[in-house]
């Protein structure tokens, strides 16, 4: 029971770690370049969840002072993650641009095929 209790209080962290591993795995093992980018996004999102849940308080509201409310969510992680989302967006857009160019040059989105084509040219 103690484990279940611990898991339920740290549920967000647990989910974040699971998502992180899924993203990491997708990024490294899948051959499709688009799937790699998806993995990158899942990994980033998991980190955002992790960061935001550090500052989250059950029942808290956005930290804009109102009368009669005592519980506020810590705004610092949320503010930081907004920046993180912007960064993730630019990384994704840039990666997609590169993928379009790669597809134009090689005619495939398969990383293995691209490597094979390259090594055939060199060899």
């Amino acid at each position: 029971m103690a484990i279940i209790e611990k898991l339920s209080t740290n549920l967000y962290y647990l989910v974040a770690i699971i998502l992180f591993i899924i993203g990491f795995h997708t990024m490294l093992t899948h051959n499709n370049l688009i799937k790699k980018i998806m993995g990158m996004n899942i990994m980033d999102t998991s980190l955002f969840l992790f960061f935001v849940s550090i500052g989250y308080r059950r029942g808290g509201i956005a930290p804009i002072i109102k009368e009669g409310i005592v519980e506020y969510v810590n705004p610092v992680p949320s503010a930081l993650i907004l920046t993180g989302i912007v960064i993730s967006l630019s990384f994704t857009a840039f990666a997609l641009g590169l993928v379009i160019l790669l597809y134009k040059h090689y005619g495939t989105l398969d990383a293995d095929k691209i490597i094979a084509m390259r090594s055939r040219e060199i060899g």
Partner: peptide
């Protein structure tokens, strides 16, 4: 791709 892993 590798850089994104490092940033993560």
């Amino acid at each position: 791709v590798l850089s994104a892993l490092g940033s993560g």
